[in-house]
Design a protein around this nucleic acid. Structure first.
Lengths: 231, 231
DNA sequence: GTCTATAGTGCGATAGAC
DNA sequence: GTCTATCGCACTATAGAC
């Protein structure tokens, strides 16, 4: 992943494929004691399982989704599912771990490549929008189903939430410091950026009904920040 | 409810009490065929049941909450619960209907009392913030547990979501029309206001950890809108 | 590696005593 | 109006054949 990757959503998707494969393999190796089939078979079937967990989980809720539902939707038997995951909860944990790994890896690949804080801010926003577009089912799932995780995992999830907000916060602070941004509460503007990004994946129906594309939305955020942040 | 009521959160809470009683009674009368006890007894026990549904539902999810959990938390027997609601789903519907009725009633009580679109906008924001502060458990519940409603109720819930956004949208449009607001996409600014209001009740822990009060948050939104909307 | 059959548990809901 | 006891069902998870 590099600056070329964010030239368009399609390019971004393309560049993600390799990362996805790597992370899936790492996940399988990490859970090797629980997965009872070969890496090759797991690599083939886990994506289908993950997709199904997210689809069913987002439409009826994870706890209302039974393994029978998942079995039917994936055309796998109940027994077969238990060779890929040791329990229903384990399935949830793997789905989470897989997506978190990809997303964190993706953020780390970029950093702050520009001199101008404003450009760095716009870049992070674009990356976040692209990621939430591609992994929208997981973003939505993670938001609404956190409560089914253990306390430790809930803490972790809140921490990761704050970490990404902190990322925006730092960029904005650097802009205030070098006086390219207007003096203001960077806590609030970072939270605002986060909540705008969130709205995009929490209420996709709203924007698609209005015919607003990802690029439109990105541009509106840019207009807003130009007026709000720049002197 | 009148303009005096929004002078402070405490005043607002005080003025809500009467409305709450009225709406609870209306709800009981509407569900009379399903409720097997007198209005007086229902009036006394339903609030506790509702509160418990929201508490447990928000911490473990509604579908993972059993009637046995609710029974234990309210010190009522399983049988007793079934004299107040005819099923677990009915409990969910009543909690929703009750809160929706209060909130809609509250909005209708205000309208657009000022000449200036900006003042009207600030007023609606304040009302929304106050309501979401007081009924935070329900706002959070409604957001994360919509999926357990029937398709008809889900449609209704999205419609109500859009309706409240439309309310902001109309005020902003009137401001653009009378040139007191800058020319811009009112779709986006209305969505932005909504998503900021949402962040407040979806992530209370974030703001309380930072020591940001409701009034602070309200002021920051005002500052943002001053820069973004006014010429 | 995948299947079917089933053990064991906890659920929503009801019946009937008080 | 509230309770306890219990029915029937659907769930997670496993065992053992192929």
């Amino acid at each position: 992943m590099n600056l070329e990757s964010v030239s368009s959503l399609e390019q971004f998707k393309l560049d993600l494929v390799k990362l996805e494969q790597e992370q899936l393999l790492m996940l399988i190796e990490k859970h090797q004691n629980l997965i009872k089939v070969s890496n090759k078979t797991a690599l083939k079937k886990l994506p289908l399982l993950f997709e199904t967990v997210l689809n069913l989980g987002n439409s009826k809720g994870f706890s209302a989704t039974s393994l029978r539902d998942i079995s039917q939707a994936t055309d796998m038997s109940l027994g077969a599912i238990y060779t890929y995951a040791s329990s229903k909860e384990d399935l949830l944990l793997m789905v989470n771990a897989y997506h978190i790994a990809i997303i964190e890896n993706c953020y780390e690949a970029f950093g702050k490549p520009y001199d101008s804080p404003f450009d760095n801010l716009l870049l992070s926003i674009k990356i976040h929008l692209y990621l939430s577009q591609i992994y929208r089912p997981w973003f939505y799932f993670a938001f609404t189903e956190t409560k089914h995780l253990s306390k430790k995992n809930i803490r972790q999830s809140k921490a990761s939430e704050l970490k990404s907000e902190q990322f925006f916060h730092n960029i904005i602070e650097s802009g205030i410091h070098d006086k390219s941004f207007r003096e203001h509460s960077s806590d609030f503007s970072a939270a605002m950026v986060k909540s705008l990004l969130q709205d995009w994946y929490l209420k996709p129906w709203k924007y698609s009904n209005r015919g607003i594309s990802l690029e439109d939305y990105n541009l509106e955020i840019k207009r807003l920040l130009t007026l709000y942040l720049l002197p």
